[in-house]
Design a protein around this nucleic acid. Structure first.
Length: 572
RNA sequence: CCGCCCGUAGCUCAACCGGAUAGAGCACCGGCCUUCUAAGCCGGGGGUUAGGGGUUCGAGUCCCUUCGGGCGGGCCA
């Protein structure tokens, strides 16, 4: 399978302890564990290996000796020296030396560094995939109210949520994507009233127009379609308008269906698909809300005051108690939220991650408190949350605030139409969700290395172009990688080797932006190599080895771009 | 007043559960295409990591505090 793999002579018991450790990092960890066991059998330590920033510090470094210094009450450098002397022989290891305050710097053999190329070509699309994880995880994201077009903030939620799902799947989880529609609250009443008024010819500048009515032009579209008795298909149902402006319920039904269809189209254009759509109205219709309220009352965490029913959320970490049933008899929004999450738990999701805008962060404590009050065996930190900060759209250095269609915000559809799906997805996911995001339209449209999307895609297109000229050279299996060894090649191999751990880390940290950053670094390493070393060399052995490396880079770009939901074009 | 997020080069951002001399890109200056895609590469200048304390062998990273920005704190969602 891999001709450059030497016959490694590492001890049998290490092989047993690290059955999967065929990458250099795990291998080194095994060697260190062996040395530690012989040095201090009773001491266990978290063996950390990291890639030093500086090349002169070797390929991997560990702070193990410094960590042990306190426990063993000895000088770190002396501990390091003894650890080195106890390391088993390994043909992967070219050297190990003490540096600084007690670091051990490891240098790998060239064969150990380049073998990742063979691993990648053998794994293909499975390169970077983690082992299957137990349990099922549900990710709820977007969950926009069906009261208007999706805006940039929803776009960020869609991009982050969907990339998170793809990351979790690659990391080995069984993922369900869910969208929750608040189709039962006051905002829907407001929508209904706005459409009804428009259907009767009332405009937002009329004194009769309600203060909080929806003013966007899309309301005109809905009203016009209703009067024209159109039929809209949303998800699983078809709704036909009866065209009667006096029929409030008909308007409500039609308007919600119409806007759900609009949102579905936007999400489809954005490349986001959901497995399950849940409706708030269904929670009321089949009694799940009432059942949750009864359960909370039965558990004794509620009380009546000022004509309202309260939940004692302060018993579960909230800073004040919350009203469940208002004086007018209706429930506050967090009651269906609790009922909804109880339902998620009963559906068997051991993990639930809610991706939302940070402006909703106050619901986190409330929902968790409500679930704890139910005493249903739900873990304290369940569900998990990923909260993204605000997005500001900028063009020509100035903030863009208004979309004609939506009236008060920039829509996701506007962005996709202007800068394209790939750039929109990349930019919305490339920053930590914790940070506010400036979406620069000029940058997203620019065609230079200012624009990381094209920079990464260009690397893929370049490789594809070269490989097209030698379709079979350096293909998977049996390639001799020994000719590889230039500085740029080894740097590239090291970068490729980071990929599986990066995916694992990004998934567990809920941080899809790390994938975006990695791909930019990988593309940079490739472009640097491409300009330094010629791929289509006359020397057959060298050419074949280099094309194998190029294939490995391309495979990693493809796998990584797939996590972001960004395309990998063959030509540009 | 309270809670959450953020503060790193002129600008936009990195820095792998505390590691060695804090890195890229843009902008600025200077180079590289009669050979694989110049949407590319190479080199140069640019920093008290907002300020101040603390924890320790070691802090951009953890704790406290001050300042600044954003978002919340409805019987709205």
């Amino acid at each position: 399978m891999c001709p450059v793999t030497p016959g490694f002579a590492f001890p049998h018991f290490i092989a047993l302890r690290h059955p999967m450790s065929n990458d250099p990092k795990s291998h080194l960890a095994g060697l260190l564990q062996h040395a530690l066991t012989r040095l201090a059998p009773d001491v266990s330590a978290d063996i950390q290996l990291e890639r030093p920033r500086q090349a002169s510090h070797g390929d991997f470094a560990t702070n193990l000796a410094m960590q042990l210094a306190r426990v063993l009450k000895d000088n770190p450098r002396q501990i390091a020296e003894r650890l080195i002397s106890l390391l088993p022989a390994s043909e992967w290891l070219a050297g190990a030396e003490i540096a600084g305050a007690g670091f051990i710097n490891f240098t790998l053999t060239t064969a150990a560094k380049t073998r990742v190329v063979a691993d990648i070509l053998a794994a293909g699309t499975a390169w970077g995939r983690g082992s299957a994880k137990p349990g099922r995880v549900q990710v709820e994201f977007v969950s926009a109210n069906p009261t208007g077009p999706l805006h940039v903030g929803h776009g960020r939620g869609a991009a982050v949520g969907d990339c998170l799902c793809r990351l979790l799947e690659v990391a080995g989880w069984d993922v369900t994507r869910e969208f929750y529609y608040n189709d039962a609250g006051a905002q829907i009443d407001n929508l209904t009233r706005s459409v009804q008024l428009r259907a009767r010819g009332v405009t937002p500048d009329d004194p009769a127009w309600p203060e909080d009515g929806y003013r966007g032009d899309y309301i005109i579209d809905v009203a016009r379609a209703f009067l024209a008795r159109e039929t809209v298909a949303a998800d699983d149902q078809h709704v036909t308008a009866n065209g009667d402006p006096a029929d409030t319920e008909a308007i409500r039904h039609f308007a919600v269906a119409y806007l759900r269809r609009e949102q579905d189209q936007d999400l489809k254009a954005f490349g986001v698909k959901f497995d399950v759509f849940s409706l708030e109205s269904a929670l009321y219709a089949d009694g799940r809300v009432e059942a949750a309220v009864r359960a909370l009352v039965d558990k004794g965490h509620t009380y009546e005051q000022d004509g309202a029913l309260w939940l004692r959320t302060t018993a579960f970490g909230d800073d004040k108690d919350r009203v469940m049933r208002k004086q007018d008899g209706g429930y506050t929004y967090f009651v269906p939220d609790v009922a909804y999450h109880l339902d998620k738990w009963r559906r068997g999701f051991t993990r639930v991650i809610n991706e939302q805008g940070a402006d909703h962060h106050s619901t986190v404590t409330r929902v968790r408190a409500g679930l704890q009050a139910l005493d249903a065996g739900i873990p304290v930190g369940w569900p998990e949350y990923v909260l993204h900060q605000m997005v500001m759209v900028v063009r020509n250095g100035e903030e863009v605030k208004i979309s004609k269609r939506a009236g008060s915000y920039v829509t996701l559809r506007d962005l996709i139409e202007e800068v394209g799906r790939d750039a929109t997805r990349y930019f919305l996911v490339a920053r930590s969700p914790d940070s506010q995001l400036v979406f620069d339209i000029d940058l997203a449209l620019s065609r230079s290395n200012e624009n990381p999307v094209y920079y990464i895609q260009y690397a893929h297109a370049r490789i594809s172009s070269v490989l097209q000229q030698c379709p079979d050279d350096g293909d998977a299996g049996g390639v001799d990688l020994a000719p590889l060894g230039s500085e740029k090649e080894l740097a590239l191999c090291a970068r490729l080797g980071e990929y599986p751990a990066l995916v694992e880390n990004a998934a567990s940290e809920h941080a899809p932006h790390l994938v975006a950053g990695y791909l930019k670094d990988l593309a940079a390493d490739f472009h640097a190599w491409y300009n330094a070393d010629r791929l289509l060399e006359d020397d057959a052995a060298l050419r074949t080895a280099r094309l194998a490396l190029a294939r490995a880079v391309r495979q990693t770009l493809v796998n990584g771009l797939d996590i972001l939901g960004v395309s990998a074009p063959e030509t540009m």
